[in-house]
């Protein structure tokens, strides 16, 4: 009658829980996630763009649009994985309830990766439609944009889950957002090419996963894909592999005493 699900079906059950919860609030959730990137696109792209004529051969608006798509996906993942996980651990008891079933912590984490990858694609897709309407999409390569966004589902979820597991207050979550996520957003080549920066700064930026995501989405949207772009994928996959296990132990420690 009952068959305890294997790893993938178990993770799919966790995904399903998040989807059912999201379905209730999807309109406000999408709206909330678009205020900021849309403001950036209009204020900086159109406003500042009037003074910055050309960047790497395209208009400033055109330059920042694909990068903002990557940022939208990153934020959709980061804030959900951060705040939602914190609440699931500390107030609603959603994870504690999951553990009274046969679900295990690694299955829960994998389920969250699947869900956040879904969010990254979904929110990235809506932003994509916006820049498409602005006439800022120039290549069929754009159809591959979901590929880096799937990896965002691990890359940005893993550290957010970890921070949510070790944070003792809501405020401590904000440290992560303001000290890690916001600087990454500003320096990952969304608003300006990093080539003119000092070498040491460039090396640091090269470590940031968002940088590689931005390069990929921009190359895809502008139709500037080259064989070398494979290395950006290799970077992202390697990061994802390294980070994937990070939150498992932290969550297990919080949930099993």
């Amino acid at each position: 009658m009952n068959g305890t699900p294997g790893l993938l079906r178990a993770a799919a059950a966790v995904w399903w829980r998040d989807f059912v919860a999201w379905r209730k609030f999807w309109r406000s959730s999408i709206l909330l996630n678009f205020g900021e990137p849309l403001t950036n696109l209009l204020a900086l792209g159109v406003g500042l763009g009037a003074y910055v004529a050309v960047m790497q051969g395209v208009s400033f608006l055109q330059f920042i649009a694909p990068g903002l798509l990557a940022v939208t996906a990153m934020n959709a993942v980061t804030f959900d994985a951060g705040f939602d996980t914190y609440d699931k651990l500390n107030s609603s008891g959603v994870y504690a309830a999951m553990l009274t079933s046969p679900l295990t912590v690694p299955e829960i984490v994998l389920g969250e990766y699947l869900w956040e990858a879904t969010r990254a694609i979904l929110y990235g897709a809506v932003f994509f439609l916006v820049i498409l309407a602005f006439g800022l999409v120039h290549s069929w390569w754009s159809l591959l944009v979901p590929l880096p966004l799937i990896l965002f589902g691990v890359l940005f979820t893993a550290p957010a889950l970890y921070v949510a597991a070790v944070a003792r207050t809501h405020e401590q979550l904000f440290y992560y957002f303001s000290l890690v996520i916001t600087p990454m957003f500003m320096f990952s080549g969304v608003f300006f090419p990093v080539a003119h920066l000092p070498w040491i700064v460039q090396d640091i930026i090269y470590i940031l996963p968002l940088y590689h995501g931005v390069l990929l989405t921009r190359a895809m949207v502008l139709g500037q894909m080259t064989v070398g772009m494979i290395w950006q994928f290799v970077w992202l996959i390697a990061y994802a592999a390294i980070l994937a296990y990070l939150p498992v132990r932290a969550l297990a420690r919080r949930l099993t005493t």
């Binding site: 305890t4 699900p5 059950a13 059912v20």
Partner: peptide, 16 residues
Amino acid sequence: DLSLMENLLVYARYFG
């Protein structure tokens, strides 16, 4: 975040 029925159905899914 879920209704009563959804609470039960989602939980049943954890058991396959």
